[in-house]
Design a protein around this nucleic acid. Structure first.
Length: 769
DNA sequence: ACGGCTAACACT
DNA sequence: TAGTGTTAG
């Protein structure tokens, strides 16, 4: 949804530069014989000649359109040259276009703030450059105005028989308003930039120059190719008056359709009849204001300083019959996609010194034999580890977690590649949260670049080693006592950490850990209870809404928890980390665990053991349950997901607490009112308690149990017993298996309806059980 | 059973 | 937040 931003009172000079049929131009530069020819770029697809993704202006004259099939294009324009998009790893490879786009950005960013809006478009904020020009060397003093500039189109200007002379006059008027003069300067600058682009890259582009992004964007498309269009302030209302509403950026989709159908608005001008309040009534505060402003040509959106993309993705569709039906084929394609992604991440690292922090997997799927086959395949993400093999591994885990969730009850026997009627019609992996490494950090570069070769055995990173050690049960732990891995990477990272305190802390603890454990945890050293500190990205919302644990909440059932008082805790450490460190309780199977979540380390997730006595313990076995619940094999993933979403109990004020429980992939949450102290007395689940009455609540609703009405708002989760993967269950230690079975048993009798798990009881006061 | 592949952003 | 949905080219 678009969102309104106030427009600064200053008169800005904004340009939108749009490459003309960019992919075609790239191919024409590669193959100059294509110049001036009807041509199009097709994405290879044997079906009906592939799909057109760019069409030259010569071909457009024949009526060839983007989104036509190759065969269709041949029909309307037999002599069209169809160029295929390069293919790598069995999929379209857009890298040559990305790189060409970068060439252009490098030039266009010379005169002011530059935002790369897509592979072939940028926004420029030329205000400062234009003001400087106006002050030093205004157009009116110039004896010659560039040829390119006088070819500009000035909206609302009567050009008569000598357009160039009229435009020249308009640009150089000494009696023009300040804002028109600024635009004139902008036009000169843009003309110059476009000329430079042409000379240095051989690409032509079109541009719009206006006082804001919206109008600049509108204008850049008005005269193509290779021309520029100016929007003087005085022309705005006329321009918008008759402009079809759908032409407006952001209104080409459902919102625009709704305006047409529901409000009878067909042109932007028609919108003027509606008061801001009315629009807000229909479309919400933000969108309403945005619409109101848009109708008046007002848009305060800033040009962001961004030359590089904020995310990288690689995806492919597998339409209809080509849908992937086995995990093996998914793995194969994921592997291809991950290779491309990893390659792009490596070049981003080398060229731009940037590191991505999150890996996300998206998929589309269909289910043939299922009533709710419209269910969407969930996207999943996890911290991104560098190295192709690791990315592949993680992507596959994410897929499998998603698949489990997607299949839900049909999941009972999917151990092999056996298909239960599902098909994957689209797959993509992407990397986001990309941040620049501070300058002068060779060691960090090394760290990430080395991830590539270290997999899987030779030189495991410290992080990986430790995680593996934790995740393996003693019997599985076959890590030898081979040489101590150096902590080179960790130190390299810590050295550049901005926060000296944190740095100190990290190094100290890492050192201590190494000293004490000899770094590698031998099977004997893997204790029943392991103390952990987890680093995790700061979660601002938690911070805001739940600033503190209350002391009395940290005392639990008396099971394995020895908590220092909050006061002690604060006096020791509170000052140092006060506002950055989050504490929360992890409650699992009736026991509380206090976990300290630290602000994220700068680079990559880490886990390390600590001595701090007030940091409580997570039993390895229970970590394994969590791992199972998450469908993830990685500790850091568990940490991020579980602690926040799975079994986290949010800090509360006196009477309120929010509980989030994600159970087998389904997030359920409720705010409940309950005296905190009484909640804490709960120590175990009673699986045989009678099921709660209300099962069908959806998120956001709340329910009041008549019995408890006066005191509590009662939470309700529903969960589907069939979502549980029985195979995974078997992986668990015997004792835990039995416990879990005990939870499940009462449900088995009626597994058609979603039922509350006994776990609901968990969060109710003991007294009322 | 088709338009394929990317990317940004708002909302929750 | 992580995850979803909308929009665009």
């Amino acid at each position: 949804m678009p969102v309104a931003r106030p427009e600064s009172s200053d008169s800005r000079v904004i340009a939108h530069v749009d490459m003309d049929c960019f992919y075609v131009q790239v191919e024409q530069r590669k193959q100059p014989s294509l110049r001036g020819q009807p041509a199009a770029v097709v994405q290879y697809n044997s079906w009906q000649g592939g799909g057109l993704i760019a069409v030259s202006y010569e071909a457009r004259k024949f009526g060839v359109k983007r989104s036509m099939r190759g065969d269709e294009a041949k029909e309307v324009c037999p002599e069209i040259h169809l160029v295929q998009v390069p293919v790598a790893r069995g999929k379209a490879d857009l890298n040559s276009y990305r790189n060409a786009g970068s060439e252009v950005v490098a030039i266009l960013s010379r005169r002011g703030r530059c935002e790369r809006a897509s592979i072939d478009e940028v926004y420029l904020d030329l205000t400062i450059a234009a003001e400087a020009m106006l002050a030093d060397n205004p157009p009116e003093c110039l004896e010659t105005i560039s040829e390119e500039a006088v070819k500009s189109h000035v909206l609302g200007l009567e050009v008569g028989t000598d357009p160039r002379e009229n435009v020249r006059h308009w640009l150089t008027r000494s009696d023009a308003s300040h804002r028109d003069k600024l635009l004139a300067c902008g036009a000169l600058i843009v003309a110059e930039l476009r000329l430079q682009v042409l000379e240095e890259t051989e690409f032509t582009c079109s541009a719009g120059i206006a006082h804001n992004k919206m109008l600049a964007k509108l204008a850049s498309g008005m005269n193509k190719p290779a021309q520029q269009t100016l929007v003087p302030f005085s022309s705005i209302s006329k321009l918008l008056e008759t402009l079809p509403i759908k032409k407006m950026k952001q209104l080409g989709g459902k919102l625009g359709t709704s305006l047409q159908i529901d409000l009878g608005v067909n042109t932007v001008g028609d919108l003027l009849q509606f008061s801001e309040e009315k629009l807000q009534e229909y479309y919400g505060i933000n969108t309403g204001s945005w619409l109101w402003n848009t109708a008046r040509g007002i848009s305060g959106e800033e040009v962001k300083e961004r030359l590089l993309p904020n995310s990288h993705g690689s995806g492919k569709t597998f339409p209809g019959p080509r849908a992937l039906k086995t995990v093996a084929s998914v793995e194969k394609w994921l592997s291809e996609l991950c290779e491309e992604l990893s390659e792009r991440l490596q070049s981003d690292l080398e060229q731009n010194k940037r590191i991505a922090h999150t890996l996300t997997l998206h998929a589309q799927a269909h289910k043939s034999n299922d009533a709710d086959s419209f269910k969407k395949f969930p996207s999943k993400s996890c911290p991104l580890r560098y190295g192709t093999a690791k990315i592949k591994e993680d992507a596959l885990s994410l897929f499998q977690a998603g698949l489990r969730e997607y299949l839900g009850q049909y999941n009972l026997k999917t151990s092999g590649n056996q298909n239960c009627g599902w098909g994957i019609t689209g797959l993509s992996v992407s990397a986001s949260k990309i941040v620049a490494i501070p300058s002068g950090t060779r060691s960090i570069m090394n760290y990430f670049q080395n991830q590539e070769e270290t997999y899987p055995q030779v030189k495991l990173s410290s992080e990986k080693l430790f995680q593996d050690a934790l995740l393996l049960s003693p019997s599985e732990n076959c890590l030898g006592s081979g040489g101590h891995p150096t902590l080179q990477s960790t130190e390299g990272i810590a050295r550049h950490e901005e926060d000296k305190e944190t740095k100190h802390c990290v190094e100290e603890e890492d050192k201590e850990m190494c000293k004490e454990k000899g770094f590698l945890l031998s099977p004997e050293q893997l204790p029943d209870k392991e103390t952990l500190i987890c680093s995790s990205p700061v979660y601002p919302k938690w911070e805001k809404e739940y600033p503190r644990w209350e002391k009395d909440q940290t005392e639990s059932s008396g099971v394995s928890l020895t908590e220092k008082s909050r006061d002690t805790f604060e006096s020791e450490e509170g000052k140092r980390k006060s506002n950055k460190e989050k504490n929360m309780l992890l409650r699992l199977k009736g026991k509380f665990y206090k976990v300290v979540i630290r602000p994220t380390m700068l680079y990559g997730a880490k886990c390390w053991p600590v001595k701090n006595p007030h940091v409580q313990k997570i039993k390895v076995a229970e970590m394994r349950i969590l791992r199972w619940m998450c469908g993830h094999t990685r500790l850091d993933k568990i940490r991020n997901e579980v602690i926040r979403d799975k079994v986290g109990v949010a800090p509360v004020e006196d009477k309120m607490r929010e509980v989030r429980l994600r159970w087998f992939g389904h997030v359920k949450w409720r705010s409940i009112e309950a005296p905190v102290r009484r909640c804490e007395r709960l120590t175990s689940v009673d699986p045989h308690s009678e099921p709660p009455q209300e099962n069908s609540l959806t998120r956001g609703e709340s329910s009041v149990d008549a019995r408890l009405c006066s005191q509590f708002k009662r939470p309700s989760w529903s969960y589907d017993i069939d979502e549980i993967d029985q195979d995974v269950l078997k992986e668990l230690p015997k004792q835990i298996q039995e416990e879990v079975q005990a939870w499940l048993r009462p449900q088995k009798r009626s597994n058609t309806v979603k039922k509350d798990l006994g776990i609901t009881r968990y969060f109710l006061p003991a007294k009322d059980k």
